[in-house]
Structures are given as C-alpha cells and as structure tokens.
C-alpha cells in the first residue's frame, strides 16, 4: 500500500465528479482526497486526487479512469516532480494567556498565519503539503487543550517546470 497522486483533466459538466467518485465507491477503491476546479478553459476541470493502494489496484484505477468518457486525460503524479499544496484552516478556542501568546509564537516558527482573532478564538490558515499540515494538526492537539476544528481543501498539484 502506497500513497499515490493523480491529476486529471475532465469535462466540466454536471455529474462528472459523481462519475469519478462513484467509480471509487462502486469498485471498492480507496480515495484519500479529491479537489476539483475549473481551468483556463471553462469546459475543462482539473481534479487532483490522493489515494492509497497497492500496485495492482493502482494500475486498474488508472485504466478505469482513462476509459471513462468524461475523463480527457489522466496524469500519474506519484513519482513526478510537482508542486503540491493544500489549504487548511484551524479554528481553536484559547483559554489562557499562555495559549493566546503561544499561537502567535508558533506562527513565527511554523508555516501558518493567524487570519482571524477575537481574544478568545483564533483561525489560522496554512498552505503546505499535506504531510506538513498533518504535523500542524498534531502540534495544535498537543499545545491547546480545547478541541480544534479543522477544514482542509485536499491537495492540488501542478507539474514543475
């Protein structure tokens, strides 16, 4: 079982996302993250998918995606030089002065910004690769005693020049 990254060009039409995700659920494939957005061509969307599977299943997934009429092109990003980033928000209630000071100090050391703050609650924004964001979540869980609220966009990726 290995982590893989797939980038796809698909028709920008109603139901295409359902077709792709339906393929994964119907064929019992595991999907870690998926993010979709329009491209420079309004008729085309680009999907970035993260998945974890063995080699045989991965070969099947690529073939199944390729044979879908709605899928224009499939790129295997797993071992390609790419830029890959994920946007993450974390909201956390800060109970003590120590916690309030901590969050601004952490922001100077780790890669995130405090984008909203009212003296009791803070929202941070982090644009990292998915592993770094995982580590940030760990960090917040260790530093703050209140439960944190996490929203992640799923990664998007583009080939390096």
């Amino acid at each position: 079982m290995e982590k893989r990254w797939v980038s796809m060009y698909v028709e920008n039409q109603i139901g295409v996302l359902a077709k792709i995700t339906g393929l994964f659920s119907g064929k019992n494939y595991n999907l870690d993250s998926i993010s979709v957005g329009e491209t420079e061509d309004k008729t085309v969307s680009r999907i970035t998918m993260g998945l974890t599977c063995d080699n045989l299943t991965y070969e099947q997934i690529l073939k199944q995606l390729n044979r879908s009429v709605e899928v224009i092109k499939v790129l295997d990003f797993t071992n390609m030089p790419i830029h890959k980033k994920e946007l993450m928000f974390i909201k956390v209630n800060l109970d003590s002065e120590t916690e309030k000071n901590e969050i601004f100090r952490l922001a100077q050391t780790f890669k995130f910004d405090v984008i909203d703050y009212n003296g009791k609650t803070a929202v941070i924004q982090a644009i990292n690769n998915d592993k770094e964001n995982e580590q940030l979540i760990q960090l917040f869980e260790n530093y703050f005693k209140n439960e944190i609220e996490v929203v992640r966009s799923g990664s998007i990726a583009i080939e390096k020049i």
């Binding site: 109603i14 139901g15 359902a18 077709k19 339906g22 393929l23 119907g26 009429v69 709605e70």
Partner: peptide, 16 residues
C-alpha cells in the same frame, strides 16, 4: 436515471 445508471453503463448523459 443518469445517476442510477452511471455505474452500469458505458456512458449516460442528460440533454440540457
């Protein structure tokens, strides 16, 4: 019906 048949046909489409 497009949603229902999506996984059991080669291609399904609504004329919009």
């Amino acid at each position: 019906i497009v949603g229902i048949t999506r996984n059991i046909c080669k291609y399904a489409v609504t004329v919009r």
